[in-house]
């Protein structure tokens, strides 16, 4: 087992290097640091000195990949590539273009993101599976047909309208919870209810439909026919046999997104003013803070790869047919 995990991790390294090279090309080769400086300082009336100073403050004045003036190892290390890209591998994110410590910001902001993402995931899963089981129980009836139609209708509404509608209805008309904002500790709960609720409702359409397909696929299998032939009731077949076997694809589908929960949701956090990593990213995009965007791209890819590895491991844990090899 340990052997397998270690080997999987080694497979991840070339992918991370690839991600790193892509981001490096995007951020430093497509546009030179001079272009970035000019953009930041305002396009017109920028003195060359101001550009030099901007670059020097952020360490962008070094050569891109090879420093011929330095000595020994510093020929490779004293460059933009090493300082800004290679150091990401050990999670040294450095400083943002505005001068803040990115690593510290991330460690602070990841908790509000989790406070929303985890309840949304758990409650959403419960709601989706419940509805999907219900629809699958009444398959090939009008309940099934209209259930699917309702799912398609729900899927066709942009997530932003769920948020706007929810804020308007619950926050503005009913005055039940504050529209946006955040607080520390248990006071945060009243700010979290609405985003969590909307996150769950917004996902019901696609989630229910997806799990319904999973259940229906499972219902068509031989062991279900055997169970029915034994004389088991339909509900027992569904809840005991089908649900148990359908848990394998459901579980592995969930595991892959688990690490990404840290990243939070861009839209939800920005609409509700929650200081998580999602709104951190949006703020960085709007203020064109490339150092933060670069770090988030790397972090996101890293977490995704972790998710993939976890998925493979969880497969072997829940499905005895799959052997490690």
């Amino acid at each position: 087992m340990l052997n397998y995990i270690i080997r999987r991790m080694f497979y991840a390294i070339p992918i991370l290097i690839g991600v790193n090279l892509i981001t490096f090309t995007l951020f430093f080769v497509v546009n030179t640091p001079d272009d970035m400086a000019r953009m930041h300082l305002g396009m017109k009336r920028v003195t060359p000195e101001a550009i030099e100073k901007w670059k020097a403050d952020r360490g962008y004045d070094k050569p891109v990949a090879f420093n011929s003036e330095a000595q020994g190892f510093a020929k490779l290390t004293d460059t933009i590539f090493f300082e800004n890209s290679v150091k990401l591998f050990v999670f040294e994110f450095g400083r943002s273009d505005a001068g803040r410590d990115i690593g510290f910001d991330i460690s602070q902001r990841m908790w509000p993101s989790l406070a929303i993402a985890v309840p949304v995931l758990i409650l959403g899963l419960l709601a989706n599976i419940t509805f999907a089981l219900l629809v699958a129980f009444f398959r090939a009836t009008y309940i099934d047909f209209w259930g699917v139609v309702v799912c398609v209708v729900l899927m066709s509404i942009s997530g932003m309208f769920y948020i706007i509608g929810g804020q308007f209805l619950v926050g503005k008309l009913l005055h039940l919870v504050p529209i946006s904002g955040y607080d520390t500790g248990f006071d945060a709960i009243k700010f979290l209810i609405l985003p969590v609720l909307i996150g769950v409702i917004g996902g019901i359409g696609s989630g229910t439909r997806w799990y319904r397909t999973l259940f229906l696929e499972e219902i068509g299998k031989d062991y279900v026919r055997t169970a029915r032939a034994k004389g088991l009731s339909e509900s027992l077949v569904l809840f005991k046999h089908v649900l148990k076997n359908a848990m394998i694809p459901i579980l592995t589908g969930v595991v892959v997104v688990l690490p990404l929960l840290f990243m939070g949701s861009l839209i939800t956090e920005s609409f509700f003013g929650i200081p998580g990593l999602g709104s951190y990213t949006i703020d960085a995009i709007n203020s064109q803070d490339f150092a933060i965007v670069r770090s988030m791209v790397f972090l996101g890819s890293f977490l995704y790869i972790v998710g993939l590895i976890l998925t493979d491991i969880s497969y072997t844990l829940v499905d005895p047919r799959i052997r490690l090899s």
């Binding site: 892509i22 981001t23 995007l26 951020f27 497509v30 272009d35 990404l260 995704y304």
Partner: peptide
């Protein structure tokens, strides 16, 4: 493995500068 929205954001930001 790069989250879609982040890759798009990075690419569009760079294109804006260009």
């Amino acid at each position: 493995s790069i989250p879609g929205i982040l890759l798009i954001a990075a690419a569009v930001l760079m294109m804006q500068i260009y």
